[in-house]
Design a protein around this nucleic acid. Sequence first.
DNA 1: TCTATATTTCGATAATTGTCGAAGTATTGG
DNA 2: CCAATACTTCGACAATTATCGAAATATAGA
Lengths: 112, 112
Amino acid sequence: MKADQIIRALSALAQEHRLAAYRLLVQAGESGIPAGALAEQLDVPPSSMSFHLAQLANAGLVTQRRESRSIIYSADYAAMNGVMGYLTENCCGGVPCGDSTACLPDPQRKSA
Amino acid sequence: MKADQIIRALSALAQEHRLAAYRLLVQAGESGIPAGALAEQLDVPPSSMSFHLAQLANAGLVTQRRESRSIIYSADYAAMNGVMGYLTENCCGGVPCGDSTACLPDPQRKSA
DNA sequence: TCTATATTTCGATAATTGTCGAAGTATTGG
DNA sequence: CCAATACTTCGACAATTATCGAAATATAGA
């Protein structure tokens, strides 16, 4: 994963509403949350929420799927793990350290 | 750790030069790297580097100490772990998942 | 097809962030 | 005390990002 991609992900998370939205999505798991519900819960106008969700999607941190009239967003755990892996890379001068950030969607987790 | 603090940390890392500097510091470990050396390695003017290092310090991601005429910066591993913990919190809808991001300075790591 | 719902795109404006030279502040050695 | 070194702070300007109403797009149901 290259630096530019990581920076986009970090920028995406470095904003009040997006960080809050992302965390809700992370906790919601695979079922995800529709854009409108996120806007309501975070008390942000729909157009603003849409802007923020687009940033998260562009960063690869969330995926979207249409379901009837709603667009459901869900967190992409692999992307999050990628970012954290990048930050911890060579974290102790090359010496291996308890560096095993792994997080998979609820239903189908690997046996870590 | 509260959201505002996390946002400052993520903002600090979400910038080309700061991400690069931070990674150098992470790899350098406790000995750290003087401001000037970072500026030179990253090909950034001293005043710009200073600005960026101040951001990282303000976010609590790095610490600084004076050593003669130089100011040595080093990564604060605990802060990094705090940020990652925040991101993975309740990451699978409350179900525990391989969520053990830990990273300690080279010389004195815990037996994880 | 017409209307209501759900969301996005557009566009204009406000706010924040990045850049870097010049000047200022520590520290050391002569 | 003076000059050199290592950094930081200041200040001005450029660039990017956030906000949100209005208009556009997609879907579903009557």
